[in-house]
């Protein structure tokens, strides 16, 4: 009798586990549909606000982006909360000899949850993509402004013309050629951003070179992994032909890896040098400082 009632009890739990799992997957599916609908609706709105934000620093856009991402997270959190609750419930309920029932439930639900997270991450990347700034345009605006104002100033003391001889991105003293008075020239807010704009624009202009370097780097690690895998497999290999064949492939991969590795610093230096050349050209007054930064990055071999 005892065993019979225990079996009935187990049957009930198994049934409950399956029902809960099915319900959880239906729940996940509904959440995923909502997540997609919401994100798809938000993307064009974010793109629009990125272009037309009345705030000069695009703070409205950043706040909206943050709240949209927050909503996507809230969907995943909702699924996770339910998962945790059910997992804990069955963890306490399913006895040791039927543990695999619990583990299967947990792992399958976790897989479903991870699928939802992948969808969330995909849309977060899409949302990140709406945060674009055309630094070429920002720089053009600075150049145009300089052209339009460089001859517009007169000494505050004697009214003689004072030429703004180059783009100054910090407030500076300009001397009047007629009365020698030190005038203080303060650049516009947009020109004060020149150093930052310069770096971002240089990065935009050299993104393809960075990509080339990254791809080569990835290739190096793929070749290395293949080679490593083959080397490991040799340990348990007894067939002579296979050993010879694998050794040959390992040698080929070693050669390939060396060639790719040799290219890496060349590609990195080409990227970094081009980036800093652009930055120097945009803001030449900071060239000395840029070069010290360049030297550091080249030595440390990581990209900015």
């Amino acid at each position: 009798m005892f065993n019979l009632s225990k079996n009935v009890e187990i049957e009930k739990v198994i049934d409950e586990v399956h029902t809960t799992k099915d319900r959880f997957f239906v729940f996940l599916q509904k959440l995923e549909i909502r997540l997609k609908e919401f994100a798809e609706e938000a993307l064009p709105e974010l793109t629009d606000l990125n272009k037309n934000d009345p705030d000069g620093n695009k703070l409205g856009f950043y706040r909206m982006k943050s709240s949209v991402e927050g909503q996507l997270d809230s969907i995943v959190q909702k699924a996770r909360d339910v998962f945790e609750e059910k997992k804990n419930y069955f963890e306490g309920k399913i006895e040791h000899e039927h543990r695999s029932l619990y583990y299967d439930f947990r792992n399958q639900c976790l897989d479903g949850l991870q699928k939802l997270e992948i969808t969330r991450n995909y849309y977060k990347n899409q949302i990140e993509g709406t945060d674009s700034q055309d630094y070429e345009m920002v720089y053009q605006a600075i150049l145009e402004e300089y052209d339009s104002i460089k001859n517009n100033f007169n000494c505050v003391q004697c009214s003689s013309p004072i030429l703004i001889d180059k783009i100054y991105f910090t407030t500076t003293y300009l001397s009047c050629a007629a009365c020698f008075t030190q005038n203080t020239f303060e650049p516009s807010s947009q020109t004060k951003q020149l150093e930052h704009v310069g770096r971002s624009l240089a990065e935009q202009r050299t993104a393809h070179l960075l990509q080339e370097y990254k791809e080569q780097s990835k290739l190096a690690s793929v070749i290395f992994s293949k080679k490593h895998e083959l080397e490991m497999s040799l340990a348990g290999e007894n067939l002579k032909d296979v050993i010879v064949q694998k050794t040959k492939i390992i040698q080929e991969l070693t050669a390939q890896n060396e060639a790719v590795e040799k290219e890496l610093p060349i590609l990195y230096e080409r990227y970094l040098r081009t980036l800093f050349d652009h930055w120097n050209a945009i803001n030449p007054t900071m060239k000395n400082e840029h070069e010290k930064f360049y030297t550091r990055l080249l030595k440390e071999n990581y990209y900015i």
């Binding site: 910090t170 407030t171 003293y173 004060k192």
Partner: peptide, 18 residues
């Protein structure tokens, strides 16, 4: 004055980068 501060500020940032 701001002329001095703005240069110092830009150069402190550059020192951090270097």
């Amino acid at each position: 004055e701001s002329a001095v501060y703005e240069e110092a500020s830009a150069l402190w940032v550059a020192r951090m980068q270097e």
